[in-house]
């Protein structure tokens, strides 16, 4: 099925199926972005009753919809913190797992258990722990910790994939040429791993920015943006909800495009390198 010029009929069947799937993925999302421009008198579904930015302005002006602006700022800050911590800790741990060490199985299964544990339970556990310890829960302490139990294992798995393709002789060559351990990491290992590390940061940021299950019970009094939106779904019945959705998705897209753009930039510079030197 490769190398001949005519496509088998199954290709077209699969292509149609794939197109439907992509429509299924994006269709509903696109609809709510359209509906967020609903006229001031429009409802939550079609038809469009005019086109306006009414619901976007309502986001900032109406107090009734809650603390959107505040939660938005909190979520961005939290996501940035999570991304930085995830990159540092996951890269370090990924490097550690290249050697055999006692306790590696424990560390690995701890991470996997943390990854597949239902998120709400993690939040519940953190809330209970801090309650028993008499400590307050805050978005920037317990909320941060709760999200890390999700982003760190993810980051670690990405690092496994990245390091699995990393040719160790680059590091040996550096040592051979007189690099110290630190010079080796700084001059060779990290630059070569850079695309993967950007990937870890991207995942850390967006997983945190959209996280709800773990954060719900661990974030304390002040909501993150997804929690704020979650609260809105039960009491807001206007296209404001869609406007929030459009804004938050735009933020996600900016982050994704920036990350993928920088990965592509790095990759393009050494596009064919893998084929020849790995």
């Amino acid at each position: 099925m490769h190398g001949d010029d005519t496509r088998p009929w199954t290709f077209y069947a699969f292509a149609a199926f794939f197109t439907l799937f992509v429509l299924f993925l994006y269709g509903p999302m696109i609809v709510i972005y359209i509906l967020s421009f609903q006229g001031p008198n429009g409802g939550m579904t079609f038809p469009m009753n005019g086109v306006s930015l009414h619901w976007f302005s309502a986001l900032v002006s109406q107090t009734r919809v809650g603390d959107i602006a505040g939660s938005f700022v909190r979520s961005l800050g939290l996501a940035a913190m999570v991304a930085v911590i995830t990159v540092v800790l996951a890269v370090l741990a990924g490097l550690a797992f290249r050697r055999r060490f006692r306790g590696s199985a424990f560390a690995f299964y701890l991470a996997i258990a943390s990854l597949i544990m239902p998120g709400l339970f993690v939040g519940l556990g953190i809330a209970l722990t801090f309650r028993l310890l008499g400590l307050p829960t805050e978005w920037f302490t317990t909320g941060l910790g709760a999200q890390l139990t999700w982003t760190l294992p993810f980051g670690l798995l990405i690092m496994f994939a990245v390091l699995g393709r990393f040719n160790r002789s680059y590091e040996e060559a550096a040592i051979d040429l007189g690099a110290s351990n630190w010079q080796k990491v700084k001059e060779v290992t990290l630059p070569i791993l850079l695309p993967g590390i950007i990937g870890v940061a991207l995942f850390g940021f967006t997983l945190s920015y959209d996280e709800i299950a773990r954060t719900a019970l661990a974030a304390g009094a002040k909501n993150t943006l997804p929690l704020e939106i979650w609260a809105m779904t039960t009491n807001v019945t206007s296209p404001t909800l869609y406007a929030v959705g459009a804004v938050t998705t735009i933020v996600s897209f900016i982050v994704i495009v920036l990350s993928l753009g920088s990965i592509a930039l790095v990759q393009r510079r050494r596009a064919a390198a893998g084929a020849r030197t790995e």
């Binding site: 269709g27 509903p28 999302m29 609809v31 709510i32 509906l35 939550m44 579904t45 079609f46 991207l202 995942f203 967006t206 997983l207 920015y209 959209d210 709800i212 997804p226 939106i229 979650w230 779904t233 909800l241 929030v244 959705g245 938050t248 998705t249 996600s252 897209f253 982050v255 994704i256």
Partner: peptide
């Protein structure tokens, strides 16, 4: 990589 909640509620108008 985008919000699960938004993706979920996007089915409501549908």
């Amino acid at each position: 990589l985008t919000s699960n909640i938004i993706r979920m509620i996007s089915w409501i108008p549908f």
